[in-house]
Simulated scan of single mutants.
Amino acid sequence: MSEGVLDVHAHAVLRSSEGAAGAAGPELGTSSDGRPFYRVGDYVLHGVRYEGSPFMDVDLRLAAMDAAGIARQLLSPNPLTYFGDLPVDDAVSFARRHNDGLAALVAEHPDRLLAAAQLPVQDVADSVTEARRAVRDLGMSAIYLDTDPAGRTLDDPALDPLYEAVVELDVPLFVHPSPIGPDGPPADPRLRRFDLDLQCGFAYDETLAVAALVFGGVLERHPELDVCLSHGGGAAAFLAGRFARAARKRPWASDALREQGFEAWFQRLWLDVHVHDEGSLDLLAARADPARLVFGTNFAGWDSDADDTPTGPWAQALTANAERLLRITPTATSAAGDAPSP
């Protein structure tokens, strides 16, 4: 295996899952003006080239990982294809096809790639069944979930059987928003300007996810659940003081939340450090548990650059954290040591 860091934030697009969601696709194609498109239901993403890129070509991915100094990568579903609004049967069909394809891809490169499972979140019982199949039969290393799966908040008690299954399977849960783009931001068209749906929209959803997990008691009800959020948990580190004050003073706060404080519960979360700024990273490391920070890239995405990859002790610490999160044997260069510092 190449030396380098472990990247937990990398999406994959699979040719084998095309058409697996029935009429919703997904479908790859080229428009009349020569631009590539990717159709998901009624939404068509124009101009993003998946085919012939690391998203779909594993040889290009591995070469780009080598160039970026990334030793291993956790591959996860494309957030465009969460398909939370599909009929259950179509969602189950897509999840199974996607997980089968992703597991087969990872099996070809077990020393470089790991996989996170797609779930048919419309039906919690079907999600539990697929999570068990993905981990036990396909060897997948994690479960992937939207910040508002099938329109539920993450603290919805209906999701508790799924969280119990994740703990039983001894794998982590990764939470990443779906783009606002497919339906547009109906309540705030200002997010359509300057790609703010990708910048502010994701941070908004991730911050609300932190609130649901902490304020909504998910971590209290499931003390052994490991949850990792993308992009540093949105704006939660910046808002930590206001969240802490609300936990002390607002009437909805549970006894455990009041007694331990927001800060202690926030430090139960795992967060990727894909935040693009040293000041933001310093704030994140000060508010979160540094031993629960992991490296993520959104590999090959618009906001990913090869020079993002950390090196030296910081990279080793992030990798050791990720290996603990993913329950994998530490590499020789990433043995656990002091808490990381940027």
Rank of each mutant, 00 (worst) to 15 (best):
L271E: 08
G151K: 07
L80D: 08
L14H: 08
D226R: 11
Y163P: 07
G101N: 00
G25R: 01
L208N: 10
F238V: 13
D282V: 09
A187D: 14
G84P: 10
S76I: 10
R248T: 13
Q260F: 03
G34K: 02
L169K: 03
A211P: 10
N321R: 05
A107H: 08
E27S: 11
Q122H: 09
E224H: 04
F243M: 15
Y38M: 01
D7N: 15
L293I: 07
G4I: 03
D205Q: 15
D137W: 03
F266R: 09
L14S: 09
V106S: 09
P342D: 04
V121I: 13
P223D: 08
A286S: 15
V44R: 15
R190S: 13
A285G: 01
P120N: 02
L229C: 01
F37D: 09
V106Y: 08
Y50T: 02
I143P: 12
F83L: 08
R96K: 12
G4K: 05
T207M: 02
P161A: 11
L154C: 12
D188K: 00
D272W: 01
T207L: 04
L326C: 08
D308Y: 07
A315S: 05
V214Q: 10
T297G: 14
D338W: 00
V166R: 07
I328F: 02
D188A: 10
T329Y: 00
T319L: 01
R324A: 14
A288L: 02
P340W: 01
S93Q: 12
E164S: 12
A95S: 13
L169A: 10
G22D: 09
L45M: 13
A91F: 06
V44D: 14
L239E: 04
S127Y: 02
R133Y: 14
M140H: 04
A142I: 08
D156R: 05
G201Y: 07
A339L: 04
R190V: 10
P161S: 10
D308C: 01
E323M: 05
L239S: 02
A125C: 03
E27L: 15
A247T: 12
D303L: 15
V175A: 13
R96D: 14
D146H: 15
A211V: 05
A20H: 07
I180R: 13
F243L: 15
L114A: 11
L269K: 13
D137Q: 07
A131Q: 07
F299Y: 11
A158E: 15
L271I: 00
D255C: 03
A103T: 02
G47W: 08
V218P: 03
Y163T: 08
V273K: 06
L198W: 15
D156E: 05
L75N: 06
G312I: 04
G216W: 02
A203I: 06
F215K: 03
L80E: 05
V128P: 07
N99G: 04
S2C: 07
R112F: 02
G232P: 07
A71S: 10
D338S: 14
T333V: 11
A10N: 06
H231C: 02
Y82P: 05
D33I: 05
W302V: 10
T319E: 00
D33Y: 01
V124C: 12
P179K: 12
G29W: 01
S2G: 06
L138M: 03
S93R: 15
R292M: 09
P54Q: 00
A71L: 04
P157W: 05
D137E: 09
P186L: 08
S16M: 11
A125F: 04
D226A: 13
F215L: 01
R292T: 06
R245K: 14
V106T: 13
G312H: 04
